[in-house]
C-alpha cells in the first residue's frame, strides 16, 4: 500500500504544507485589510500593521457609517440587488420553461435558442450600448442598474438544463387534468426547482452587488451610486470629495484605515453569503454541464 511507504509520507507532509500556504495566500490580503481597518492612524500610516490590529480602534468604521454618501450608496446597492435579482429570476423562469421543451413540442424553440445564444458570443460593444442607454433616457436613473441586466442568458441555460431533468410524466398528467403551461410552471416546476432557484439567485445577487461599471458610466450624481461604484471612486480613483474631516478627526483618522474599513464593509455581504454559495455553487457548475 503506497499510503504507508516512507517516500509517500514525506511527500504528504510537504504537500499539505504547500497547499496550506497557497490557501493562506488567498485569505491573507483580506485579513491584512481587516487588521488595518481596526488600527490607529499612526500604526497604519507608519506601515506597522501586519495581520493583527495595532492600537485597536473602531473610529474608521464610525466615520464611514457617518458618511451620508456611503449610506446612500449602501441603500442603492441593496435596492438594485433585491430588485435586480427578483427580475432576473422571474424572467429566467418564464424563458427557461419553453426552452426546456422538445423541438417536437415547441417548434420555435431553436430559433429562440439562437437568439439567446448569439448575444453570448457577440455584442455591439461599449459605445453603441452607451448611446442606446442615452436614447432610452436611462442616464442618471436608478433603473439603468437593473434593466440592462434582466436577461441573463447563462442563468437561463442553467435553469433550462435543470427543468429538463424534471420527469415528463408530471407535465403530461397535469395537461390531461386540464392544467395550462403557466399553471404547470407555477404549480409543478417552480416548487421542485426551489434549490436550483436559490443557487441561481445567489449568483445573481453576487453579480449585482459586485457590479460597479454601470454606475460609473451612466450615473453622474454620487448620491445615486451603488456601493461598488462608490468604493471604486473613493478607493481606486481616490476621490475624497464626499468626505469632510474636522481637525480633531484628521488627527485620529488615516486615509488607509478608512479605505480599509470601507473595503471590508463592501466585502462583508459576500462573506456572509459565502458559506451558502460554497454549498451550492459546486452543484451549480454540475447543473450547467448536464448533457442530453
Amino acid at each position: 500500500m503506497y499510503h504507508k511507504t516512507v517516500p509517500y509520507r514525506i511527500f504528504n507532509v510537504f504537500n499539505v504544507i504547500i497547499l496550506l500556504l497557497l490557501a493562506l495566500a488567498c485569505v491573507i490580503p483580506l485579513i491584512h485589510v481587516l487588521a488595518v481597518s481596526f488600527s490607529a492612524k499612526s500604526a497604519a500610516d507608519g506601515n506597522l500593521v501586519g495581520l493583527w490590529p495595532v492600537d485597536f480602534t473602531t473610529i474608521a468604521y464610525a466615520k464611514t457609517i457617518d458618511n451620508p454618501v456611503f449610506l446612500s450608496s449602501l441603500w442603492v446597492a441593496l435596492k438594485r440587488t433585491v430588485l435586480g435579482t427578483a427580475a432576473i429570476l422571474a424572467v429566467a423562469c418564464l424563458a427557461a420553461y419553453p426552452l426546456s421543451k422538445e423541438n417536437a413540442q415547441f417548434g420555435g424553440r431553436s430559433v429562440y435558442s439562437w437568439l439567446f445564444v448569439f448575444t453570448m458570443i457577440f455584442n455591439g460593444g461599449l459605445v453603441p450600448f452607451y448611446i442606446v442607454i442615452q436614447r432610452l433616457h436611462l442616464m442618471d436613473s436608478f433603473w439603468v442598474l437593473v434593466l440592462p441586466g434582466v436577461v441573463n442568458v447563462w442563468l437561463i441555460i442553467l435553469l433550462m438544463n435543470f427543468f429538463r431533468g424534471i420527469p415528463k410524466e408530471l407535465e403530461e398528467a397535469a395537461l390531461i387534468d386540464g392544467c395550462g403551461h403557466i399553471g404547470i410552471l407555477w404549480r409543478i416546476y417552480l416548487p421542485v426547482s426551489l434549490p436550483a432557484l436559490a443557487t441561481l439567485g445567489l449568483f445573481a445577487m453576487v453579480w449585482h452587488w459586485n457590479s460597479w461599471f454601470d454606475g460609473l458610466l451612466y450615473l453622474s450624481d454620487k448620491h445615486m451610486y451603488p456601493l461598488a461604484t462608490y468604493l471604486q471612486t473613493v478607493i481606486v480613483s481616490r476621490d475624497m470629495s464626499s468626505m469632510s474631516f474636522t481637525k480633531q478627526e484628521f488627527d485620529l483618522l488615516s486615509q488607509k484605515t478608512i479605505n480599509a474599513a470601507q473595503i471590508f464593509i463592501g466585502a462583508l455581504p459576500i462573506l456572509i453569503v459565502y458559506p451558502f454559495l460554497q454549498r451550492f455553487f459546486v452543484k451549480g457548475l454540475v447543473m450547467g454541464s448536464v448533457k442530453e
Binding site: 422571474a90 426552452l99 437568439l115 434593466l147 434582466v150 395550462g180 403551461h181 403557466i182
Partner: peptide
C-alpha cells in the same frame, strides 16, 4: 403560452 412566456426576455434582449 410558450411565446408569451418568452416575451419578457425577448423584449429586454432586443432592447439591450
Amino acid at each position: 403560452p410558450f411565446h408569451l412566456m418568452l416575451l419578457p426576455a425577448l423584449v429586454f434582449l432586443i432592447v439591450f
